[in-house]
């Protein structure tokens, strides 16, 4: 292995591509689940709904203080056992590695997104709520059309940053024996003995996707700065 030899890419790219597709689809699914659930969790806390708000606060605190890899393990091994007990016959009901990954990432990201949105909700000017009241808008319309769109706009750079981290974290699915981009590259590297080339290709791919997303963050920040200046 004296010189770099990228010819191995010619035959291995379909496998890498399928790995990348898995990484991207896991990111997309976790983003959607995380945002929908996270918005719900943030609103529950924002409205101070008794008991539920405390439970949500506890959930967010716990999730945010343990590593994702641990949550993946727990979910993979414990949830089948719990489901088995609930179903009555006591035998574990396996939910499969792929489902585990999608559900766990969604639930995990929800905790992070909910914190971002909760802080955003507090930042909305009191006058916006008063204007909605004066116009007799219902609470639903107030949040649906006035408050949440502004929160998402203000928080969009932070949400996107969190999503870039999420994309990079998808490589942790190797613990479930799932093959994402990094997993695919790693297997090929072992197989062909071309570790440097494979890991370089993967690094460049992560770099390209993440920095493109970071450019979007910068553009959003700029656009938001223009929109609020008077």
């Amino acid at each position: 292995m004296n010189t770099l030899d990228f010819s191995i890419l010619a035959q291995s790219w379909p496998y890498l591509w399928s790995g990348l597709l898995f990484s991207l689809s896991l990111t997309a699914a976790a983003f959607v689940i995380g945002m929908v659930l996270g918005t719900g969790l943030a609103l529950v806390q924002h409205f101070e709904i008794p008991v539920v708000a405390q439970i949500v606060r506890g959930y967010v605190a716990v999730i945010r203080s343990i590593p994702l890899i641990l949550v993946l393990f727990w979910f993979f091994f414990l949830v089948p056992i719990v489901l088995g007990h609930l179903s009555g016959n006591g035998r574990p009901i396996p939910i499969g590695a792929t489902w585990t990954a999608f559900i766990t990432f969604g639930l995990f990201e929800a905790a992070y997104y909910s914190e971002i949105i909760r802080v955003g909700l507090r930042a909305v000017n009191k006058g916006q709520f008063e204007a909605c009241q004066a116009l007799a808008l219902s609470t639903y319309d107030t949040y649906r059309h006035i408050v949440l769109p502004q929160v998402l706009r203000v928080a969009s750079p932070i949400i996107l940053s969190q999503t870039i981290i999420l994309f990079q974290d998808t490589s942790l699915v190797y613990v479930l024996s799932l093959t994402d981009l990094l997993g695919a590259a790693s297997k090929l590297a072992q197989l062909n003995g071309r570790l440097v080339e494979m890991y370089l290709v993967v690094a460049v791919t992560y770099l390209a996707i993440s920095s493109a997303a970071s450019q979007c963050v910068a553009a959003l920040r700029k656009r938001y700065a223009v929109a609020t200046s008077r």
Partner: peptide
Amino acid sequence: FQSFNLFPHLTVAENCMLAPMKV
């Protein structure tokens, strides 16, 4: 209001249209 309290993410026309449509 003293501080206008327009909705910054909606156009001028949309600011005026929202409540009549929803309410």
